[in-house]
Amino acid sequence: MPHNGTPTNFLRRPEFTTDLLQIAKGVIAATGAWWLSDNVLDSQMPFLAPWTALLTVHATVYRSLSRGVQTTVASAIGVGVSFLIGSYLGVGLWTFALAMLVGLAGARLSWIRDEGVAIATTAIFVLGSGFDSQQPLLADRLLEIALGVAVGIAVNLIVLPPLRDRQAKRYIDSVNRQMGEVLIDMSKEFTSSWDTDSAEGWFERTEAMSRELDSAWQTVRFARESRRVNPRTAIHAERRNRQSSAGEAPEKESYENILLRADEGISHLRNLARTLRDASSAERDWDDEFREEWAAIVAEAGRSIADPDAEVGPIFDRLEKLSASISQDRRLSTTSWPIYGSLITSLRHIVVIVDDVASARDTRESV
């Protein structure tokens, strides 16, 4: 994840805030469920409710609901298995092992796989806490489990359910900035000279961008999940609708579309680096007009994609003029055309992506 090294910036990172929020939610949910179980239900096993509450507090409301249902079902099965085995076979070494076998086998069921281990852990709690005294209280145990799940879901709904948009924006912004920085470095080196090591460094930086883009995709998917069954989503949607009706806020470009364009841009940038790497290993006399103008266009494109607020000229038009000028220059050798054509074509694709990224600036956030 892109980050700044100072402690203050680290503490301001949205994922750090989210982690703290998740800790607070877990504490509130478990403590609240324990208090209700002990003081309202007067439970003899007040740890079942806080345990299930803790299992239910996930990073998104949608996941809390889906996992909460799974936890409820799995825990209910665990209670049922425990009472059946304890009632008919008694509690002993082999019957305890049997309960574990059934519980862990049941955990493999696809529809409760995420929380299926709760079958076995619930059996441990019930069989290991004095089964004879718990036998008449099957309904109470199920009620405590349901209470824990309900408290966990309620806490996740009420206590600032995360939207994760800021993390997604930071990733997108970081990838775009790195693309721009590589283009600017290419321009500086290409203006005078460059070597294979420089070109190899650019190539490796595009590989690092691809890895960061993978993390960005994961964060964007999580951001989408965090919007499902989230009361803050409705609030934000209503606010955007009011702003849109008042002409204040245009429709935002989706993160997925921006990431797809960024992925394509990285691919073309990698091709540029590969072309320059291969060209650096061969003796070649570059056309001065092409070299100067192409380097200038690359610098403009780099500044534009790294900073959408930067004032740049009509990049695409300049590239078209360069292409037309070179095509009419009969001084170029036949061996130069493949290199020049590859550089122009890759940069043309990147320039189109630069315009797309600039038009989607509302989805970006300064780091």
Rank of each mutant, 00 (worst) to 15 (best):
P2N: 07
D19P: 02
I23F: 13
I23Q: 08
A24L: 14
A30G: 09
A30H: 01
A33I: 01
L36A: 07
L41G: 01
S43W: 00
P50C: 01
W51N: 09
T56I: 04
V57Q: 00
A59L: 12
Y62N: 15
R67L: 12
A76G: 11
G80M: 08
V81S: 02
V81E: 04
Y88Q: 13
L89C: 06
G92Q: 03
W94E: 10
G103Y: 00
A105D: 06
G106F: 03
A107G: 01
L109A: 12
I112M: 06
R113P: 03
E115V: 07
T121C: 05
F125H: 05
V126K: 03
G130N: 02
S133V: 13
P136D: 02
L137N: 14
A150F: 06
V151C: 05
N156S: 07
N156T: 06
L160N: 14
P162A: 00
D165C: 04
R170D: 14
V175S: 04
M179Y: 05
I184N: 07
M186K: 03
M186V: 09
S187I: 06
F190K: 00
S193G: 09
W194T: 04
E207C: 06
R211K: 12
E212M: 10
W217M: 10
Q218Y: 11
T219C: 09
F222H: 10
F222G: 12
E225W: 08
S226T: 00
R228H: 05
V229E: 04
A234P: 00
I235T: 00
I235P: 00
E238R: 14
R240S: 08
E248P: 08
E253K: 11
E256Y: 11
I258S: 11
A262Q: 13
A262S: 12
D263G: 10
S267E: 12
R270T: 09
N271K: 15
N271L: 12
R274I: 11
T275D: 00
L276T: 07
L276I: 08
S281R: 13
S281V: 05
A282H: 11
E283W: 12
D287Y: 03
D288G: 06
R291D: 08
A295H: 00
A301G: 07
R303H: 13
S304T: 10
P308Q: 05
G313V: 03
P314C: 04
S325T: 14
D329L: 02
T334G: 10
W337E: 08
G341A: 05
S346R: 15
L347Q: 04
R348F: 10
H349F: 13
D356Q: 13
D362R: 08
R364L: 13
V367C: 06
